[in-house]
């Protein structure tokens, strides 16, 4: 499928701005990453980090009249950003698909789920209605809907939340897309259902050799399914690398802060957690230098207040692990060792 050199999906310098009454909102700022088939990239960030807008820009879901998207998103050599709306629409649903947190954002409340699944087939494939229905039935079976022959004639409201999520996944995957973007697909679900859904996505990914971009705020999900991770903050990727890089060798103070903020199921942390102080920045008024500087405990270690005035670049520190931070390598390592030791110590 893909040539040996070019990655399957390669996003380069993607930026999204929205003009608003309060000024220009820079939602996504120079985001670059790539994903191969069969692999999972997790995009982690808090609200306002730009992780969802990045996904919508790749999928061509942003209204071009209300937003300006620059940069490239090469899907097997074709730039999704440069395509016109019709071209992107043809790609969407066939070669790429997206699932959301709220299944009702994808399901029409007035139509039976069988009709909606068949329609997804009929739009992108030249098959008979009967064949499309057969495909819908098979897909419902595969996503684990019990008694699909009855369920196919149900309306969405007749299904539970977990089942609707499965139907949405069935609809997204019915044309076996090569790229699946999942935007917080399990946030609204209970943990036991979440485990089922993540397993389902993993199984279908293996079967179809799908490239998955998982957008989430849950570090547990990242640890569970990701191969690579991009940590976003204030519209920028602040650290990226393999899942082991991010969890065991993190270097950016924000990533460290996130790891220290999470309560753990498998250990009792110190009585008090060690959260990042303050609030995430508003995308309307981002700090001029490092976006994390106002909340960073270490920016005073950098000479000349560089963190406040100079925008740091995302620098590869080896093996595909990249960090956006003015601190030098030795300083970052010392800080990371301190934080991780404290975490390991409190868990003992």
């Amino acid at each position: 499928m893909t040539s040996a050199s070019a990655p399957f999906l390669s996003v380069q310098d993607l930026s999204v701005t929205f003009p608003t009454e309060d000024g220009r909102v820079q939602a996504v700022d120079g985001v670059s990453f790539s994903v191969e088939r069969g692999k999972t990239l997790a995009v982690v960030g808090e609200s306002g980090s730009g992780k969802s807008v990045t996904a919508q820009a790749i999928m061509g879901l942003l209204d071009r009249r209300l937003s300006s998207v620059t940069g490239h998103a090469w899907l097997e050599g074709r730039d999704l950003v440069a395509m016109d709306d019709d071209e992107v629409r043809r790609e969407r649903g066939s070669r790429m698909a997206m699932i959301f947190q709220d299944p009702m954002s994808s399901l029409h409340p007035f139509y039976r789920i069988g009709a909606q699944l068949s329609e997804a087939v009929l739009v992108h494939q030249k098959v008979s209605k009967q064949a499309a229905r057969e495909q819908a039935l098979e897909m419902l079976n595969r996503v684990g809907i019990p008694d699909p022959r009855t369920r196919i004639d149900n309306y969405p409201h007749q299904l539970s939340g977990g089942m609707r999520q499965r139907v949405m996944i069935a609809m997204a995957l019915i044309n076996s897309p090569a790229l699946l973007i999942a935007d917080e697909p399990t946030t609204a679900l209970d943990v036991t259902v979440q485990a089922q859904i993540l397993e389902l996505i993993g199984n279908l990914q293996q079967e179809y050799d799908t490239a998955v971009i998982m957008i989430t705020h849950d570090l547990g999900i990242v640890a569970d399914i990701a191969d690579d991770v991009a940590v976003m903050y204030g519209g920028r990727i602040v650290e990226s690398g393999s899942v082991d890089d991010i969890f065991y060798r993190p270097q950016m103070p924000y990533t460290l802060g996130l790891l220290a903020s999470v309560p753990r199921l498998d250990q009792v942390r110190a009585e008090r957690l060690d959260p990042i102080p303050g609030n995430p920045p508003s995308p309307i008024s981002l700090p001029p230098g490092c976006v994390f500087q106002p909340r960073c405990a270490y920016s005073d270690r950098v000479a000349d207040h560089a963190c406040e005035g100079v925008r740091p670049e995302l620098v590869d520190i080896g093996g595909g692990h990249a960090v956006r931070c003015h601190l030098d390598g030795g300083q970052r390592l010392a800080i990371a060792t301190d934080v991780l030791d404290a975490l390991a110590g409190s868990g003992a």
Partner: peptide, 27 residues
Amino acid sequence: HALLSAVPLPDPRAQANREQIRLSGDL
């Protein structure tokens, strides 16, 4: 047991080695 095993740990190696019990069906 099932509830605890369903929560993914923010620790890839620990997560990969965990015993997980999947509950089927809905409430």
